[in-house]
Design a binder for these strands. Structure first.
Length: 217
DNA sequence: CCAGACGTTGTT
DNA sequence: GTCTGG
DNA sequence: CCAGACGTTGTT
DNA sequence: GTCTGG
């Protein structure tokens, strides 16, 4: 699954990489992006548009918000979203937990990870639009499976525009799960990431033996 | 019949 | 789509 | 995802 | 246990 990630590249790097025309808001590096927070997301428009979206889609039965949706069932359960409301959540890496021990998973080449998501939008009447988003998940392969059986969908760089183009009637399953796990590396990080208010450079750094004990608190 | 909802994850 | 509730 | 809370009553 | 908040 995906219950946390990091996005700390400069806004200029993000704009350049994702071909964003302009961005009118400030963005602080986030080493501990968690459900409920506003996160960066890209949707299609005249050009690609960078938005703030709140992580978690309201569920109709008023229980927990939906932070992840299985890519295997999204077409059945959220067809209106997967067919028209696809987005990309830029990440430098994401976290997975095994027995409440966090791991950081990133590109070996430090490429952006283009997390595949869907979103909802709501106009409050004053013209301001609020977005909510959920990250799609898929099966982990052999290596990542050792940590967790689910992982976020990562869209290949070359598929980004196709993924975002709601005019294109694509089968999303042809685009998900194409990013090879061989391009990823992962390692244990400090359990400080377990508390969402911990948010600082280094949170995603490899845990060495010296720092193993601090996990106890 | 129609209207409205429609998840996920984990389990030392 | 497909299921549930009314 | 994890951490932390976790009820009840009445009220124009 | 099960829910909420971040």
């Amino acid at each position: 699954m995906c219950g946390g990630f990091a996005i700390f590249s400069s806004i200029n790097d993000i704009i350049k990489y994702y071909n964003i025309l302009n961005c009118e808001f400030n963005f602080n590096p986030n080493y501990n992006a968690s459900p409920g927070q506003n996160i960066l997301s890209i949707k299609s428009g005249i050009s690609n548009i960078l938005c703030k979206m709140n992580w978690g889609i309201e569920s109709s039965n008023k229980k927990r918000k939906i932070t992840n949706i299985r890519s295997e069932t999204v077409a059945k359960n959220f067809n209106h979203l997967i067919s028209q409301k696809r987005c990309i959540i830029p990440a430098n890496g994401f976290y997975e937990w095994k027995n409440r021990k966090p791991y950081y998973i990133k590109s070996k080449k430090n490429e952006f990870l283009n997390l595949g998501g869907v979103f909802t939008e709501w106009n409050d009447g004053t013209g301001k639009i609020f977005y909510k988003t959920a990250i799609l998940t898929t099966c982990s392969q052999k290596r990542l499976y050792e940590i967790h059986n689910r992982k976020p969908v990562v869209i290949n760089y070359n598929d980004i525009n196709l993924w975002l183009d709601s005019q294109k009637n694509i089968n999303p399953n042809t685009l998900v799960d194409k990013f090879p796990e061989e391009n990823l590396e992962f390692y244990r990080v400090s359990a400080q990431v377990n508390k969402y208010w911990n948010n600082f450079p280094g949170l995603n750094e490899k845990l060495t033996d010296i720092y193993e004990t601090p996990d106890l608190f």
